Simulated scan of single mutants.
Amino acid sequence: MNALSSTSPPRHVALLGYGGLLPFMGLALLIALSLDYRSLWAVALVSYGAVILSFVGALHWGFAMTLQDMRDEQRRERLVWSVIPALVAWVATLLPMPLGCLLLIAGFVVHFWQDRRLLQVVTLPAWYLPMRLRLTTVASVCLLLGAIIVAVHS
């Protein structure tokens, strides 16, 4: 089977990708259940979200450097885009937690849109976009739940 046409990611990719959701889910749960340490878990959730948003932005830097079927203009666009998620993530860490979470959610959603744009000009594995959608959805739901809980209890 061709790796590009497979709709299932390789096992190690799935384990790493979906395993990266565990801190999102665990921290959202801790925010809901741990009254004494809620502020610590809230900071941890925004910090982890910022790290992951920066990571997914860097994917586009890697694509721009390695994919051959891109025009120079498209390559420049990917390089410019690749640093924007890190800047958004950094600003999110400076905001009050609920606003930081909402900014991260916006960053993840816009990045998914950028992933869709990228797929209009290059070929990536068939599993890439569906997996990114699932990862974006779960991370965003966890960030939203964390933001709502902190906003309600402050």
Rank of each mutant, 00 (worst) to 15 (best):
M70P: 09
D72S: 14
F24G: 05
A151Y: 11
M97W: 13
A89Q: 01
R132F: 11
G146M: 03
A92V: 01
Q120L: 13
L22K: 02
W90S: 09
G26H: 05
L79N: 00
L95T: 06
T93N: 04
R76E: 09
W113E: 08
P85R: 06
I52D: 00
V150N: 00
A89K: 02
Y48S: 07
L22N: 01
W127T: 05
W81E: 08
L15R: 10
S34P: 02
L135Q: 04
L99P: 01
L144S: 10
G146Y: 09
W90N: 04
L104E: 04
H60R: 04
Q114S: 14
A89V: 00
V110L: 15
S5M: 06
W41L: 06
P130K: 11
G49W: 05
P85A: 05
Y18G: 03
L22G: 04
A32M: 13
V51R: 02
L99N: 10
S47I: 00
A58E: 04
R117P: 14
E73M: 10
L144Q: 03
L145Y: 09
A89R: 04
S82M: 03
A14K: 05
F55I: 05
P125Q: 04
W127M: 05
A147S: 07
I31N: 09
L119M: 14
T136V: 11
V43M: 02
L99H: 08
L27M: 13
L129V: 13
A28S: 13
A3M: 08
P130S: 07
L29A: 15
A147F: 02
G17H: 07
Y128P: 12
I31L: 06
V56M: 10
L29R: 08
M70Q: 14
V88D: 01
L15Y: 13
R71E: 14
Q68K: 09
V122M: 13
L143D: 03
V91H: 02
S82R: 08
V80E: 02
G146H: 10
I149D: 06
L133P: 06
Y48V: 09
V110A: 15
A86R: 03
Y48H: 01
Y48K: 02
L16Y: 12
T93S: 05
